[in-house]
């Protein structure tokens, strides 16, 4: 089976992913962030995301990829001025699927279908890591864990650095104010996600424990947030 787990929740479509990624802000270190949402007041707001383009996960050691045509996510974003940079938003649920496939499973190599389950039992969190430039703010999604089941009965898990039963990993990306899109993966981004476990049903041609995993995906956030890190 293909490996993959890329699932990241946020990852986005390859193609789309990138709005903004090539313009990732330089590594200027921000000190605080201001987040507003149209029509919302208070200290936080419930947010939801829907994918723009495919969401893909790739085993960067073998090249095998999982492609999901539909992705949804939900969580909460802090609102306010001068907010600390860590955990500005949390993701409490992520769903990835390809409705055209049997059972809605995502597509893997050579016709394999893959059920991707994002583990958000510990909510994923979003940190701001760069100063907002041109409406684009660099960030990092933490706590990313996932498990996959392939139509070949392959079971695998992905964690930070591939530690068995370890914590979720991190993937970097960005948020674009003008498109309200949260993107992970793409050129210049990093991930410490690795395959933690595979069972005997997994095809070693496609996935092995210890393989690195990248995630690409873009989720358009509702309500639209305006993020300004300085």
């Amino acid at each position: 089976m293909r490996k993959l787990t890329r699932n990241t929740i946020i990852g986005g479509s390859v193609a789309v992913a990138a709005l903004g990624l090539t313009a990732l802000p330089a590594a200027a270190a921000p000190t605080s962030v201001t987040i507003t949402a149209a029509g919302s007041s208070g200290s936080s707001v419930a947010i939801s995301g829907i994918n723009s383009g495919n969401v893909t996960a790739k085993d960067t050691s073998t090249g095998a990829a999982i492609t999901c045509t539909k992705g949804t996510a939900s969580g909460t974003s802090k609102l306010g001025t001068g907010l600390p940079l860590t955990a500005v938003a949390s993701v409490t649920s992520v769903s990835l699927s390809s409705p055209a496939n049997a059972g809605g499973w995502c597509s893997g190599p050579a016709g394999l279908t893959i059920q991707v389950t994002a583990n958000t039992s510990t909510p994923w969190t979003l940190d701001v890591t760069g100063v907002t430039s041109g409406g684009v703010t660099a960030g990092k999604l933490n706590g990313v864990k996932a498990s996959i089941v392939g139509s070949d009965n392959c079971h695998a898990t992905v964690t930070a650095n591939g530690v068995v039963n370890g914590p979720g990993g991190s993937v970097t990306g960005s948020y674009n104010n003008s498109t309200h899109a949260l993107t992970t993966g793409g050129t210049g981004t990093t991930s410490n996600l690795k395959v933690a476990t595979v069972d005997a049903n997994c095809d070693p041609t496609l996935i092995n424990a210890g393989d690195s995993v990248s995630l690409n995906g873009t989720f358009v956030i509702t309500p639209a947030l305006v993020v300004n890190a300085t």
Partner: peptide, 20 residues
């Protein structure tokens, strides 16, 4: 396109469906 508030985000218009 997918941008609706470039270059300066205006909270009153962000997400209002009027695309750049």
């Amino acid at each position: 396109g997918s941008s609706d508030s470039y270059p300066t985000p205006d909270p009153d218009h962000v997400g209002d469906g009027v695309w750049d």
